[in-house]
């Protein structure tokens, strides 16, 4: 029981990170029907930006307050990652809009390879570790010498994720931009005809996706305290799995899918073997796509004859 609750806490934490990345996949797929293969690497880049910002803020500026430092790091990471993704969309995807279907996917794969190798070349191939930023935990229960702990960093992740998801939900559901996005999802040409700036809406989608990935990247760095250039691929695929599981195109689906993937992974590692935990995630992806391609919350795809 104690193990179960502890894994539940760990799973939700991991799942929040996956959920934040998954939203990026789902939004981009919803609006331009493309699997943004480079999104996992955008997440990795954001973790590096957060790392550099953290070192800059603590060592160079000498800010001692952890709260202020984290806040600055988060904002800096979101800003720079958004800019990076905006440029990526401009250079690598926009010229291919309306072209041959495979082209954006190949371009995204190329961008993914480019980003991870760019980070490897500029920052070196080794793992980058930082000392723990946030220490301390709350002991929830202590039974049979097994203490169920909720660490402060987990609490921070839950809190930040919840606040940002609320802000994001407001942005998509209540603002002009959100309306424009939904219009472009339905029919880009028609949206353009009624005065929606399609290019800008798509750009903004990439910007928002990157900002949420940057939140995930910052949280990832804070949680694990280590990041390397190759950390984009596997979390990226898992987040994509989350998006598919929730129903690609569905925003609440992405969050719930992320939580589920996080839980599946931690429980698998706890109760079965840790060796095959990635196999479990990939199997969930394959099984979902085969048996439930519309996911949990997606609209079924009716074949038009």
């Amino acid at each position: 029981m104690e193990v179960f609750i502890q894994q539940l806490i760990n799973g939700i934490t991991l799942g929040s990170i996956y959920g934040l990345i998954a939203i990026g996949y789902t939004m981009v797929f919803g609006i331009i029907g493309m699997v943004n293969f480079a999104h996992g690497d955008v997440f990795m880049v954001s973790a590096f930006v957060a790392l550099i910002a953290f070192l800059f803020v603590t060592a160079w500026l000498g800010i001692a307050s952890i709260t202020v430092a984290l806040l600055i790091v988060l904002i800096v990471a979101m800003l720079f990652t958004s800019l990076v993704n905006w440029v990526i969309e401009r250079l690598a995807y926009r010229p291919l809009r309306g072209s041959f279907r495979l082209a954006p996917l190949i371009s995204a794969i190329g961008m993914s390879i480019f980003l991870s190798n760019f980070v490897q070349v500029t920052q070196g191939p080794r793992n980058k570790a930082i000392p723990p930023i946030v220490r301390g935990e709350i002991i929830l229960m202590d039974h049979n010498n097994y203490a169920v702990a909720l660490s402060y960093k987990q609490l921070i992740i839950w809190g930040v994720t919840a606040v940002l998801l609320a802000a994001f939900w407001y942005l998509v559901a209540k603002t002009r931009l959100g309306r424009a996005q939904r219009a472009c999802e339905q029919d880009q040409k028609m949206a353009a005809l009624v005065g929606v700036n399609v290019d800008r809406t798509i750009s903004m989608t990439f910007v928002i996706a990157a900002a949420l990935a940057a939140v995930a990247g910052t949280m990832y760095l804070m949680y694990y305290g280590v990041v390397s250039f190759s950390d984009g691929f596997v979390p990226g695929v898992k987040a994509f799995t989350a998006a598919v599981l929730g129903g690609i195109g569905s925003l609440p689906g992405a969050v719930i899918g992320g939580l589920l993937i996080g839980l599946i992974e931690t429980f698998w590692s706890a109760y079965f073997t840790i060796d095959y935990k990635d196999v479990a995630a990939f199997s969930v992806l394959a099984i979902t796509l085969i048996f439930l391609p519309q996911g949990l919350f997606g609209r079924p795809d009716v074949e038009k004859v």
């Binding site: 041959f100 190329g110 390879i113 070349v121």
Partner: peptide, 21 residues
Amino acid sequence: TQYRMLLFGFGMVIIMVFRPR
């Protein structure tokens, strides 16, 4: 050799942008 894969990825993007077919 470090730049091999960097240029490889870059090449994929460039080729898609200029010659998607």
